[in-house]
């Protein structure tokens, strides 16, 4: 069944148009046009109030502004209703209109009405990928808050000669928003396929952000280390000392990569709890190549 007041009103209006109490055959063309207008109005509502991501308004209480601040989980209802409406309208509803009310019309007219209806109904499905993207983006952004702790790694390993032995605490939190989302009661309105699609898309987006942020940390560590090395070598040359002792130490970048390697292995194990194989995610493979030691580069296993 439908979940939203607006979707329910659309279906009721469309049904009223072609109900035996209201419909008059001599006004068929007008009722057909009215039906298309009703679908168009609902479509505009979806577009302007739910999908208008970049709506700009100086009035903070405008509808668009409020729509943007809605929890993305609410889009589950919209996705569910759009799917239901498309199935219902292109099935039983269209059959009722064509086979019962307009059965005396020529096949050419029936074909035109059928195509007109189907085009209007299917245009609703154009919103599904946009709604899905908004949900993926909204939920994965919640994980970015925990990923920001990555920035603290550099400072930690620049101050110590200790080698990392276990993963960082932030790793356990990265997928928590995904878990919260999947545990939400609204998810019951998603089909198994759509739920799975969202799960994989969110995991891919989070991993992609993880890769971006880890790359920034490693690149910055390399740059800093390279600058420090040049400074040290300059100082040693001036003092006439050998640089051998310095070169034999494990660098800060190595330590950071060692920790990140432990982190992404734990992250990969956490992904597996959701039924996601980390090695199937392109960004995870890039992340692995970024931080894995030479002898572990070839195969992703943890």
């Amino acid at each position: 069944t439908l979940t939203l007041k607006q979707s329910f009103a659309l279906l009721e209006s469309l049904r009223t148009c072609w109900s035996e109490e209201v419909f008059i055959f001599t006004c068929s063309d007008k009722f057909f046009r009215l039906s298309l207008q009703l679908l168009s109005r609902y479509s505009t509502w979806l577009s302007s109030h739910l999908v208008a991501k970049n709506a700009c308004s100086s009035d903070s209480s405008s509808n668009s502004e409020r729509a943007i601040n809605k929890p993305v989980e609410d889009f589950i209802y919209v996705m569910h209703d759009v799917g239901f409406l498309v199935a219902e309208l292109s099935g039983d509803y269209l059959e009722h209109v064509l086979c019962r009310l307009l059965e005396s019309c020529s096949s050419e007219v029936l074909d035109l009405v059928r195509r007109g209806f189907l085009q209007a109904i299917r245009s609703l499905t154009d919103y599904l990928p946009i709604l899905k993207d908004r949900m993926v983006e909204g939920i994965s952004e919640r994980s970015v808050e925990d990923l920001k702790q990555l920035k603290g790694i550099s400072a930690t390993y620049r101050m110590t000669s200790k080698l990392p032995v276990r993963h960082s605490p932030y790793v356990s939190a990265i997928l928590r928003p995904l878990k919260t989302f999947l545990d939400d009661e609204r998810v019951a309105y998603l089909s198994k396929e759509l739920k799975n699609e969202l799960l994989h898309s969110i995991a891919e987006r989070i991993t992609s952000r993880y890769h971006e942020m880890a790359s920034d940390v490693v690149n910055l560590a390399r740059k800093t280390e390279s600058s420090l090395l040049r400074l040290r070598q300059g100082a040693q040359r001036r003092a006439g000392a050998s640089s051998d002792a310095m070169d034999s130490n494990i660098s800060d970048t190595d330590k950071i990569c060692m920790l990140l390697f432990l982190d992404i292995q734990e992250y990969g194990r956490n992904l597996a709890i959701f039924g996601i194989q980390a090695s199937h995610i392109t960004a995870f493979r890039s992340l692995w190549q970024l931080v894995a030691p030479e002898d572990r580069q070839a195969q992703i296993s943890f």
């Binding site: 069944t1 439908l2 979940t3 939203l4 007041k5 607006q6 329910f8 009103a9 659309l10 009721e12 209006s13 009223t16 148009c17 209201v22 008059i24 001599t26 006004c27 007008k30 009722f31 009215l34 207008q37 009703l38 109005r41 609902y42 509502w45 109030h49 739910l50 509808n63 668009s64 409020r66 729509a67 809605k70 609410d74 209802y77 919209v78």
Partner: peptide, 29 residues
């Protein structure tokens, strides 16, 4: 008069939908 009849029906049917769509909030049935 069929024209008047349809006009009234139009207002009734489209009006009912429009009043629902005027609400930007996601409202459960």
């Amino acid at each position: 008069n069929i024209g008047v009849y349809f006009s009234l029906r139009f207002q009734e049917i489209a009006g009912a939908l429009d009043s629902s769509l005027a609400d930007a909030n996601i409202t459960l049935v």
